[in-house]
């Protein structure tokens, strides 16, 4: 038996696994092994933080949207991401940890968020590429997570997935107008694809062989498909879209393989992957600092709100 489970009651554990095998959802009040709970605390809060930190790279262009329509769409899109953060914090709170605590862990560097948001959004086509590739990768992952075994997480994913396809579409639409636009626009589009391709592939995480948590998470159906399966799905779906745009994926080995029925591709630079996770990406410090600063600056507002609420309650009681 896994070391993490040695304190669990074997009978309960068996029932728990039987429920999971029968595709029943685990609900907050149900028995769950501590390791299951801890895994979810980590995963759901990381997911929530990612939605919220993800507002920043796109926010970098919000004051520079080139048309009324583009501005409306981008604002609504970023707002959706914040909303996803809310759904996920609520789901995460059902595990007995408060949102405040989750935020503290984020600020203390104990909780992570998707590393992809540490990359920079450098030209307007990046807004297209983020929607198309980053949301596109997220969708592949999230569609799979709709069937995750923890009820509140699964339901949050169902809600989120409904909104995500709009995100990918708006991104792709920007890519289309950039790729079909002036020579300068096309150059921006290619540049954005060059910079966002590999970070998007990295979103699926390390190869399964190296991923230590992969097995329990799969057995408990927190995760339904492996990192590599999901990554391949994304590549197979996305490369033809790049071809349609007349853009080139920055990987000369990326070709359709008749024998496997999949696209071949050159492996990720894992040194870069781990470096970015460890904090050495282009914006790790900035993203976190921004979140922390805004949170600190909002302190007086939150305090005022609480103080006013208390006074009002007193008046009502009196």
């Amino acid at each position: 038996m896994d070391d993490k489970l040695k304190n669990e009651d074997p009978e309960l554990l068996k029932e728990f696994q039987a429920k999971i095998d029968a595709e029943m959802k685990i609900e907050p009040k149900d028995y769950m092994p501590e390791a299951y709970r801890q895994h979810l605390i980590r995963q759901i809060s990381q997911h929530a933080h990612s939605e919220v930190i993800g507002m920043q790279p796109e926010g970098n262009w919000i004051t520079r949207c080139p048309s009324i329509r583009a501005k409306k769409i981008l604002m609504a899109k970023i707002q959706d991401e914040g909303g996803h953060g809310l759904y996920l914090y609520s789901a995460a709170e059902t595990l007995g940890v408060s949102r405040d605590q989750y935020l503290r862990w984020l600020h203390e560097g104990k909780a992570k968020y998707a590393s992809v948001f540490n990359y920079s959004a450098l030209n307007w086509a990046d807004i297209g590429a983020i929607g198309w590739l980053v949301d596109g990768a997220a969708i592949v992952n999230q569609v799979s997570l709709q069937r995750t075994s923890y009820g509140p997480y699964s339901r949050a994913m169902v809600k989120i997935c409904k909104e995500e396809s709009f995100h990918q579409r708006q991104g792709y639409e920007i890519m289309v107008s950039m790729a079909q636009g002036t020579a300068e626009q096309k150059e921006m589009a290619q540049d954005a694809l060059n910079r966002w391709w590999y970070p998007s592939l990295m979103m699926f995480g390390p190869h399964d062989g190296d991923s230590p948590r992969s097995s329990l998470a799969m057995q408990w159906k927190i995760k339904r498909e492996t990192n590599d399966e999901l990554r391949q799905k994304f590549i197979d779906k996305t490369v033809p879209q790049a071809e349609f745009l007349g853009l080139t994926v920055p990987d000369e080995n990326c070709k359709f393989n008749e024998a496997t029925g999949h696209y071949d591709w050159t492996d990720i630079d894992w040194d870069e992957f781990w470096a970015t996770i460890k904090g050495f990406g282009p914006n790790n410090k900035r993203r976190l600092k921004h979140h922390q600063q805004v949170h600190d600056e909002g302190q007086w507002v939150r305090e005022a709100s609480i103080a006013y609420g208390k006074k009002k309650n007193k008046k009502e009681v009196a």
Binding site: M55, G59, M75, G82
Partner: peptide, 20 residues
Amino acid sequence: CELCSFGPFLEEDLAMTNVG
């Protein structure tokens, strides 16, 4: 729109975007 990701808390961030 400049306030996006600058709200004192997440709900209010989204509310200001709504108004925007």
